[in-house]
Measured scan of single mutants.
Amino acid sequence: EINVTSHGEEQAKHWIELAKRMNLDVEVEIHGDKIIITIK
């Protein structure tokens, strides 16, 4: 399980695309200006 804290939408999209390509599950939480991505 990987937790990524992203401070930008572009960076977040990059991680989500990467996870989808690798067929991994992704959870995205938004806390103000921080985007927390959990890849399982």
Rank of each mutant, 00 (worst) to 15 (best):
E29M: 12
K20E: 05
S6N: 08
G32L: 12
I39L: 10
H31V: 10
E17H: 14
V4S: 07
I35H: 01
E1Q: 10
D25G: 05
G32Y: 10
V26Y: 08
N3A: 07
A12H: 06
I30Q: 02
I2W: 11
H7Y: 13
E29I: 11
E17P: 14
I39P: 00
T5Q: 07
K34N: 05
D25P: 07
L18Q: 02
V4E: 05
V28R: 00
K40V: 03
R21E: 06
T38Q: 02
K20I: 14
V28E: 00
H14M: 13
D25C: 13
K34E: 04
E27Q: 11
R21F: 12
S6G: 06
K34H: 10
M22N: 02
E10I: 09
E9Y: 14
V26W: 06
A12E: 06
I37N: 00
V26K: 00
Q11Y: 13
H7D: 06
Q11D: 09
W15K: 03
H14P: 04
I16V: 06
A19W: 15
K34I: 12
R21V: 10
G8I: 14
Q11P: 04
W15F: 07
K13Y: 11
I16L: 08
D33P: 03
E9R: 08
E1T: 12
D25Q: 12
H14Y: 15
T38A: 02
Q11T: 10
A19Q: 03
T5S: 06
K20P: 04
K40W: 13
H31E: 06
S6M: 11
H31Q: 08
I35D: 00
V26C: 04
K34D: 02
I35S: 01
T5A: 07
E1Y: 12
V28Q: 00
N3H: 12
T5I: 12
G8W: 15
H7E: 10
L18V: 04
V4H: 05
E17Q: 13
A19L: 15
I35W: 13
N23L: 14
K13L: 07
I30A: 02
G32W: 12
I30D: 01
E9P: 10
E27R: 13
R21G: 02
K13T: 04
L24E: 01
M22C: 15
E27D: 04
V28F: 05
T38D: 01
I2N: 09
I37F: 06
H7S: 08
H7P: 06
I36F: 05
A19V: 10
I16W: 14
I35G: 00
K40P: 01
W15G: 03
D25R: 15
K34L: 12
I2D: 05
M22L: 11
A12M: 12
L18S: 02
D33H: 07
I36E: 01
N23M: 13
M22V: 03
V4W: 10
E10D: 11
S6W: 11
I39N: 00
L18R: 08
I30V: 07
Q11R: 09
A12Y: 14
V28I: 10
A19N: 08
H14R: 13
H7A: 10
K40E: 02
N3T: 11
V4A: 06
I36S: 02
I30P: 01
I30E: 01
V28T: 01
G32K: 07
I39K: 01
K20T: 05
I30F: 09
G32P: 09
V28W: 04
V4K: 07
Q11L: 13
E27V: 11
N23K: 12
E9M: 13
I39A: 01
E10V: 07
E27M: 10
H14T: 11
D25H: 13
E1F: 11
N23G: 14
I37L: 03
V4R: 05
K20Q: 07
A19T: 04
D33R: 08
G32C: 13
E29H: 09
Q11M: 11
L24V: 04
I16K: 06
I39Q: 01
D33Y: 13
E17V: 15
K34R: 11
D33T: 09
V4P: 05
Q11K: 10
Q11H: 07
I35M: 02
E17F: 15
T5R: 03
K13G: 04
H7R: 10
I37H: 00
D33M: 13
